[in-house]
């Protein structure tokens, strides 16, 4: 039954996921080509670039993680809310929490895979040109953005599953506030002490869509 639920999510998301993968791949390729070009043309300029960017070449991925999280939530859940199609899903002979959990896990696994794959390729590419310190600085810079993408996905799911428009607007305010915590401008590594807190916030965000699903189930209007 779970494979069937994942199959449904795959059918909904396969093309958007392909598109997101292409965008991430293009961004990573652009960053690496940019670095390679600077490296070949003028290594001094490259180091200037590093200083200007606080040693973080991965900056182009920053808001892409956020956009991917929100986009995936919309692709998965907007069709469920259209014509209240979620009723069909929740009427399947499975515990309703497990159904909602399966939908969310699919999204989290897909996003995590996307973030890790693009992050790994980028970091592997950077090791050709930079010492380990610069590469790890990039890793530390990307970590909160990736968590932010997952949190944005969960907050968007929370808003999307909510049956009342007024509540959706109200949920958007704390969702924006919490998500912005992941994207504050800071030196790479400055976030490190906060990463456990940001991770906790992401984990807590997993509960919110269930609250909306309960309200949907109760027919709140």
């Amino acid at each position: 039954m779970y494979t069937s639920l994942f199959y449904k999510e795959w059918i909904k998301t396969r093309r958007p996921l392909l598109l997101l993968s292409a965008v991430f791949a293009a961004t990573v390729a652009y960053i690496l080509l940019n670095v390679a070009k600077l490296y070949q043309a003028n290594p001094v300029a490259l180091w200037e670039f590093i200083v200007q960017n606080n040693a973080a070449q991965a900056g182009y991925l920053k808001y892409l993680t956020l956009g991917a999280g929100i986009a995936l939530a919309l692709v998965q859940l907007a069709p469920e809310m259209q014509n209240k199609r979620l009723k069909l899903t929740l009427h399947l002979p499975l515990n309703e929490s497990k159904i909602v959990g399966s939908i969310l896990w699919f999204g989290i696994v897909a996003l995590t895979g996307l973030y890790l794959a693009s992050g790994a390729i980028l970091l592997a590419g950077l090791t050709v040109y930079f010492p380990a310190e610069i590469v790890s600085a990039n890793l530390l810079a990307m970590l909160p953005w990736m968590l932010g993408g997952l949190a944005a996905y969960l907050f968007a799911a929370w808003i999307c599953l909510e049956p009342v428009w007024r509540q959706r607007v109200l949920y958007t305010i704390p969702a924006l506030g919490c998500t912005s915590l992941f994207y504050l401008d800071a030196l790479p590594g400055a976030y490190l002490p906060f990463v456990p807190w940001l991770a906790s916030l992401t984990v807590a965000g997993f509960a919110f869509p269930f609250y909306s699903a309960i309200r949907f189930k109760q027919g709140v209007q």
């Binding site: 059918i11 069709p79 209240k84 069909l88």
Partner: peptide, 15 residues
């Protein structure tokens, strides 16, 4: 054991 038909024959149209 319950077959449910929603108003307007709603189904998962992405399939």
């Amino acid at each position: 054991r319950i077959g449910l038909l929603l108003e307007g024959h709603i189904q998962h149209t992405y399939f």
